[in-house]
Simulated assay, not measured.
Amino acid sequence: MKAVSVKEIKTALSHHSQDELIKICLQLSKFKKENKELLTYLLFESENEELFIESVKKEIDEQFENVNTKTYYFIKKSVRKILKILKKYIRYSKQIETEVTLLIYFCQKLQSFNPSIQKNTVLLNIYNRELTTIKKKVLLLHEDLQYDYGLEIKKLETT
């Protein structure tokens, strides 16, 4: 089965009643965990972005606590997994400020991680890539926010 375009889906959905749309959303939520997570964000967490950010930060903390530190191989795999989860939550929000806040938090956690990421090129590259992403995103924000986040970025660059 070939998927149709978003425009065609939008047109088709406009022809359904509210009850039918509810059934479609519920059916969609049964197929993939990501669909259910996105619906949860849209229905319950999008109203309070600060609470959403805090819950994501807690999850990042838990993930970093569970990292296997025996070898850098396992550390790299875990850090990539954490970053993948983080990017998924950022896609749910679609707010640049949320993205910058969460990526800065990720970089802070990575920077303070023990053993040091300075001893591994791959981890250092991940860190630098995310720092570059943060800098690009900050330019899209309001000037006051650019200044505030600029201070955070300087802290990340100096240590």
Rank of each mutant, 00 (worst) to 15 (best):
Y89T: 01
L139V: 05
T71F: 00
N66Q: 12
D61V: 08
R80G: 13
V4S: 13
Q118T: 13
V4Y: 13
I60G: 03
T158Q: 10
L51K: 08
K23W: 07
L156E: 05
K88T: 09
F44Q: 13
T101W: 01
S55V: 06
Y105V: 06
C25F: 12
T69N: 08
K81A: 15
N48I: 06
K76I: 15
Y92A: 09
Q118V: 12
N66W: 10
V79Q: 08
Q111L: 14
N128M: 07
K76V: 15
D144F: 03
T11V: 04
L38S: 02
Y89A: 01
F106H: 06
C25S: 09
S46M: 04
I75W: 09
V79K: 06
S14E: 01
I75M: 11
M1R: 08
I104Y: 03
K36Q: 07
K137A: 10
L38F: 11
I117K: 03
L151E: 06
V4L: 12
P115Q: 05
N35A: 09
K135F: 02
S55N: 14
S78N: 07
N125Y: 07
I126F: 15
S5M: 02
N48S: 03
I104H: 03
E143H: 12
E34A: 11
V67D: 05
E62D: 14
E143S: 14
K10F: 04
